[in-house]
């Protein structure tokens, strides 16, 4: 009980919200890292996955890359990057690691979504004289959109988690409040930081849930 009150006092103290180590700055860093890296990962992964899915090539790669991504510890990759020359560019290791871990779910879901489009519909589009590009953009992509967006959602949640671990390897973001709390042996600060991170992750998940509900019916995953 006393930990809870101490945590509340930590969060209520305005001194902990301002400055470079303050909650407001860390929250902003976390948000920027998540949004920028999500955009970067989508730019990298989606064109590749959509073209591969359209051509029906490289399926084994697109599906297995997710399993490989799960077996590689995020923390190990962050530290390995920190010790390479990339480690000298400030947030370099964090950005590279975030993109590396966001790409597999995007790639796998977009590829599977494209392959799950009814072959009869694709055949009909071809019969109407559509070119490959028209089929990709006007037929396959709209029908694959629910799976593609599901991949974006998984990637976003993954990015929030990875950005938190980046604090262990010296990156910025909300995780720094937790690691600083451990260094100060301050349980209230550790718990306060954890609550902020968990809240941030749930808000991100909630935004996607809301977007899915507000979206037109045909873009929803059929579940």
């Amino acid at each position: 009980m006393s930990t809870l009150t101490a945590t509340w006092h930590w969060l209520a103290d305005p001194a902990h919200w301002s400055g470079d180590d303050g909650v407001r700055h860390r929250l902003f860093q976390h948000l920027v890292l998540t949004v920028v890296c999500l955009a970067l990962s989508c730019l990298v992964a989606l064109p590749v996955a959509l073209v591969l899915g359209h051509l029906g090539r490289g399926g084994a790669l697109a599906v297995n890359i997710s399993n490989v991504g799960r077996a590689v510890p995020t923390f190990a990759v962050l530290v390995l990057l920190l010790l390479t020359p990339v480690g000298r560019w400030g947030e370099g290791p964090t950005v590279v690691a975030l993109v590396l871990f966001a790409v597999p779910p995007l790639l796998t879901n977009a590829y599977v979504g494209m392959r799950e489009v009814d072959r009869g519909v694709v055949g009909a589009a071809r019969g109407m004289g559509m070119t490959g590009r028209q089929m990709l953009l006007r037929v396959e992509l709209p029908l694959a959109l629910p799976m593609v967006l599901n991949g974006v959602r998984i990637a976003a949640v993954q990015l929030v988690a990875t950005a938190t671990i980046a604090a262990l390897a010296g990156g910025g973001g909300l995780g720094r409040i937790i690691t600083a709390g451990f260094n100060l042996a301050s349980t209230p600060q550790v718990v306060a930081g954890a609550l902020l991170v968990a809240g941030f992750a749930l808000v991100v998940e909630g935004v996607f849930e809301l977007a899915e509900r507000l979206a037109p019916t045909w873009t929803r995953a059929g579940r």
């Binding site: 930990t3 949640v157 929030v160 988690a161 938190t164 671990i165 604090a167 262990l168 995780g175 937790i178 709390g181 349980t187 550790v190 718990v191 930081g193 954890a194 609550l195 991170v197 968990a198 992750a201 749930l202 998940e205």
Partner: peptide
């Protein structure tokens, strides 16, 4: 689902007390 959304570092920290 909610438990799974919480990042691991935060999960360990929440269990600290």
């Amino acid at each position: 689902t909610i438990l799974y959304t919480i990042p691991s570092l935060a999960m360990f920290s929440l269990l600290l007390p």
